[in-house]
């Protein structure tokens, strides 16, 4: 057990060093992610100014801007960056051979690396996010009960794991298709729209929102913010956590199945 843990701690450390080289890349990404906030602030200001109501789908103007600040924060903390390209490259370029020879589980190996990327990203992101937060300080409202904070952390951990599982599953298609970028982009656009990145999902017409709730995408981001904003009560909250867990299990099993099939084909080709 001790050996097992120390093995993955080692991988984690390697991941830290490897990713630190790309810290500028992270920094640029975060910079570009923050820029649209500027447009969103003015766009929603105009919508609220010309609308007949002071709230839209339960969001005040300040609440709306805070929503987008929260998407920026949680995406910086949780969403996989380039993990899919690296996994696909492992498969395509044969780096996987060396990894298969070692007594490690590839998924666990990748997940450990994902965690270390997250740590580096969070550290790199911290300072710029504080600047953004200072700039938009009038919109920020952090007064929540400790229960809400605890539940938010739980939802966020689930969202991170789900995000990784989806990315990992998609990348495994590299066993069959040479260029996974089309697939990656399709999944990315679904995530972009249905994770709540573009706008809070609960301002959509009720029937669409009901359907979207059953897809995995809201549980990568929107769910976390909804929990934080106390948008869900008892049963609804429980339902949300259950759906999130179900999707994690689903992608876990699906990726396992893909891996088993893919690895047969892979070794057969590699001789």
């Amino acid at each position: 057990m001790h050996a097992l843990v120390s093995k993955y701690v080692k991988i984690f450390q390697l991941g830290l060093q490897d990713t630190f080289v790309y810290r500028w890349n992270f920094f640029i990404r975060l910079f570009f992610a923050a820029i649209p906030l500027l447009g969103l602030v003015f766009y929603w200001r105009a919508i609220f100014d010309s609308g007949q109501t002071t709230t839209i789908g339960g969001y005040s103007y300040h609440g709306m801007v805070f929503y987008f600040l929260l998407t920026l924060f949680f995406e910086a903390m949780l969403s996989p960056v380039e993990d899919d390209w690296r996994i696909a490259a492992d498969i395509r370029e044969g780096t996987l051979n060396a990894l298969l020879l070692r007594p490690i589980n590839y998924r666990a190996y990748r997940f450990t690396l994902f965690l270390s990327y997250r740590v580096v990203y969070a550290i790199v992101a911290l300072f710029p996010i504080l600047i953004v937060a200072f700039f938009f300080r009038e919109y920020i409202d952090l007064s929540r009960s400790w229960e809400t904070y605890a539940l938010t952390v739980l939802a966020a951990i689930g969202a991170g794991i789900l995000g990784f599982m989806i990315t990992y599953t998609v990348a495994l298609f590299a066993f069959w298709i040479l260029e996974v970028s089309t697939l990656v982009f399709i999944v990315f656009s679904l995530e972009y729209f249905f994770s709540g990145h573009m706008f809070p999902l609960d301002i959509m017409p009720e029937w669409i929102y009901r359907i979207v709730q059953w897809t995995p995408f809201p549980y990568e981001l929107f769910f976390v913010i909804a929990v934080y904003n106390n948008k869900m009560n008892g049963t609804e909250l429980l339902k949300g956590f259950c759906i999130q867990l179900l999707w994690i299990v689903f992608f876990y099993l699906f990726s396992k199945w893909l891996w088993n099939r893919g690895i047969k084909k892979y070794t057969a080709v590699g001789g």
Partner: peptide, 20 residues
């Protein structure tokens, strides 16, 4: 900076503001 993916992402995220 050898990876351009971040730059492509930057293009999208800036140009999205053109729709307002």
């Amino acid at each position: 900076f050898v990876r351009a993916q971040g730059m492509i992402y930057g293009y999208y995220s800036i140009m999205n503001m053109a729709r307002y």
